[in-house]
Every structure is written in C-alpha cells, then in structure tokens.
C-alpha cells in the first residue's frame, strides 16, 4: 500500500482534469436548456456520476444548438 501512496502526486493532474471537465459540463448544462435528447436532470446526473465519460458524452452528443 505504501507503494501506491508514493505515486499519489501522479494522480493529481488526472483528478484536476476530471473535476475541470465535470464543472465545465455542469455549468454548461445549467446555463443552457436545450439538449438533443434527455432533460436537465438526466444530464446533471450523467455529468456528475460518470467521471470522465459523462462530460464527454454531454459535449459530443448531448448538448443542443445555441
């Protein structure tokens, strides 16, 4: 287990990217209310629960037109 702790700093950038993606997507979901499918609640859940995948799905297939 000590070995894993030793590599902890390496995970910091990964966590930063994950949180940044989540926040960007969350803000976008809250500020726009048009989605290609689904509704706001569904997208909030997807974006928050599914680490990297949620925001990626939102920005590629979920978000509606401006």
């Amino acid at each position: 287990m000590d070995d894993i702790m030793q590599y902890l700093p390496f995970f910091i950038p990964l966590v930063i990217i994950e949180v940044a993606l989540m926040l960007t997507a969350l803000v976008h979901v809250l500020r726009h209310n048009r989605y290609r499918f689904g509704n706001r609640i569904l997208w909030i859940i997807i974006v928050v629960v599914f680490g990297y995948v949620g925001p990626i799905l939102y920005f590629t297939v979920g978000r509606g037109e401006e």
């Binding site: 940044a20 920005f59 590629t60």
Partner: peptide, 24 residues
Amino acid sequence: TYRLWILFAVFLVIGMMSPLMAKL
C-alpha cells in the same frame, strides 16, 4: 463547442494514466 478541449483531455488522460496503470 468544447470538442477540441474534450479530445485533448481524453488524450492527456490516456498519456498519463497508461504508464501509471502498468506500474501500479
């Protein structure tokens, strides 16, 4: 449309995670 940043984030994560996973 944020697509560029999404793609860059994916590749950055792959680049960082792969050697780490192998090591751990």
